[in-house]
Write a protein that binds this DNA or RNA. Sequence first.
DNA 1: AATAAATTTTAGATTTGTCTAAATTTTATT
DNA 2: AATAAAATTTAGACAAATCTAAAATTTATT
Lengths: 222, 222
Amino acid sequence: MLYTIAEENYIKSVYHLQQQSALVATNHLAEALQTQPASVTDMVKKLMGKKLVHYERYKGVRLNAAGKKLALQIIRKHRLWEYFLVNTLEFGWDEVHEVAEQLEHVSSAKLIEQLDRFLGHPRFDPHGDPIPDKEGKLAFRQRLPLLDQPHLKWLEITAVGDESPALLEMLGHHRIQLGTRVRVLRSFSFDGSIEISVADQKPVTISNQLAKTLLVKIIDHD
Amino acid sequence: MLYTIAEENYIKSVYHLQQQSALVATNHLAEALQTQPASVTDMVKKLMGKKLVHYERYKGVRLNAAGKKLALQIIRKHRLWEYFLVNTLEFGWDEVHEVAEQLEHVSSAKLIEQLDRFLGHPRFDPHGDPIPDKEGKLAFRQRLPLLDQPHLKWLEITAVGDESPALLEMLGHHRIQLGTRVRVLRSFSFDGSIEISVADQKPVTISNQLAKTLLVKIIDHD
DNA sequence: AATAAATTTTAGATTTGTCTAAATTTTATT
DNA sequence: AATAAAATTTAGACAAATCTAAAATTTATT
Ligand SMILES: [Mn+2]
Ligand SMILES: [Mn+2]
Ligand SMILES: [Mn+2]
Ligand SMILES: [Mn+2]
């Protein structure tokens, strides 16, 4: 079965909004898709007709198994293309999302499998988000806000909660990338900022806002 | 200015049909686009409204300068993607056209420039068709039917007039690729077949049909 | 030149995805 | 429990791209 770009975008949005609340509200979908609630109601009925979602009037919508599978296929394509754009075509991570929004709708099983192979079966995209494998399986990795981490423990940046050029500039300034190791040294109650050391260099202070946006995993050993 | 996929496909079709006759007939466009003449008339009027074509009722349509520029941009994308699919993702040349039909509509100047750079600015696609450069310029190369060539002259396969799996299989059998050097040894009047030698190996006979489909350039030296 | 055939255009309808405005249902507040 | 507010759905409209059938125009044939 082939789906339109609009249908695919709805399915993807439902998937993402479901992570926060099991039943997705019409208004939330409308907000996420930059469209009107009335349009959402129409489309959701069509998706129910195509057996991709469960839906009850006035209650909300959620993906069924088929919808979840489709969502993961689209997300797989989106994130593989993002990885390609950054790692092969030398895009900045703040430049890839819009292009991937288009590329994710190109329909060719062989294209995506060969792309995956060419890229070496990457498991995380440039923002640290997991790339579903062919079967839709997502690799797990901790993504804890740097802000809340205990002092002195070694941590590794695993993802960013935002893809803006402004964040990319900030991280460039601090020489932080995905994979960079950091430790929290102190927390300041005045403004919520924290002092960290980046890869054993001299300590720097980063804002509360930045510390909330950076996600880390805890490194056990050492 | 952004154009819809339908508009882009019409512009591309007009461009290709113009190579044969300066004024493109409604029925020819309808045939090429697998649609009805009435639909063509509607769209052509829209394209005239967007100042991409000249059009006179009952006469026919042709691209103006803006239309030609747009057509070459789309063809550039199509052929760069075909090159990518064959050379980077290891597609067969008979598998790329449909996928390129989708990829050519992805809109991102940076994407196509970086792709071009990554591929090393190729000047011909996997079928031997020239890839327009950023300014729309096409590299020239002879593409003469192998069938009509004088005996014993060294020739190089520059393009194929057909992209079918059947042709690809046939060429694989004869170890012929783009760039392969051949000479015509004899022509048989009975069925129009010709005897050729491929890269100095022992002579083989190929059908009239195949000899018409292979396009060559004449190698001056030797 | 008259007529037939082919081509092209127009008129009116359909599908997809969207919109606004009004009606309905649910949720929150008095 | 009644009422107000918020959320959602329905009704009716619209633009894009297509279609079929009928009308108009051009081209070919007698
Ligand atoms: Mn993205
Ligand atoms: Mn991403
Ligand atoms: Mn092609
Ligand atoms: Mn080609």
